[in-house]
Amino acid sequence: MPDPRPRDDPAATPALSIEGISHSYGTRRALIDVSFAVAPASFTALLGLNGAGKSTLFALITRLFGTQAGRIGIFGHDISRAPGEALRLLGVVFQSRTLDLDLSVTQNLLYHAALHGIAKREARLRSDEVLTRIALADRAGSKVRDLSGGQMRRLEIARALLHRPRLLLLDEATVGLDVKARADILGHVRQLVIEQDIGVLWATHLFDEIVPGDDLVVLHQGRVLAHGPVEDIIADAGARDINSAFMRLTGAAVDSGSPAS
């Protein structure tokens, strides 16, 4: 049985470790023996088509679902056995919007802070700080439903950072946004890695959100097909770019059978 306690050497402890995770909905297998790790202060892209299993994996990491097989650790804390310790190191932006549209920008942030046990005074300071950072200070009193899609996403990211997590998960965070808003958000998240040493797992199905130097996990039909630096994956696939590498990898997977069907 794996030890749920954090490992002794913080430098050696991954921000996120996924070890042998499998998950099924009835007879449909959504994830099959998925394993990979996200290093602290790094940007890891989780690339997969719609239906690859990304959101299921996020639901397992955030403990919305229980793990059926395998182990998930956040900075060494087992999500099943020490969920409180694990979840407070985690910030998450889900694919679907989770803001309360009828509350104001600040009220959404204060609610999130309360859910993490942050006292109101401290919560107000932190919300002012994050709103200034994402250039929404002038909209603090606005109802969330009056914000644009890009502003809502920025607010969700700011909210996920309010309790100062060390690992940030973003599930298709740029879906439905225009090109500029997408670039702004992606740039903002990459800055967080550099400036705040936050480990990021960025789930996407868009090739142009992945750049050389990123760590990449290719998830297809519930299986990890490749994991490593983008350049290595491209080279191993004998491809010119990530787009063609992905096509070669997933084409091979389809030929060898479809585990999720």
């Binding site: 955030t62 403990r63 919305l64 409180g84 979840l87 998450v92 679907s96 993490h116 046990g117």
Partner: peptide, 10 residues
């Protein structure tokens, strides 16, 4: 999706 905000509290 709002419920997730609650359920991912530590």
């Amino acid at each position: 999706g709002n419920m997730r905000t609650l359920l991912v509290s530590p």
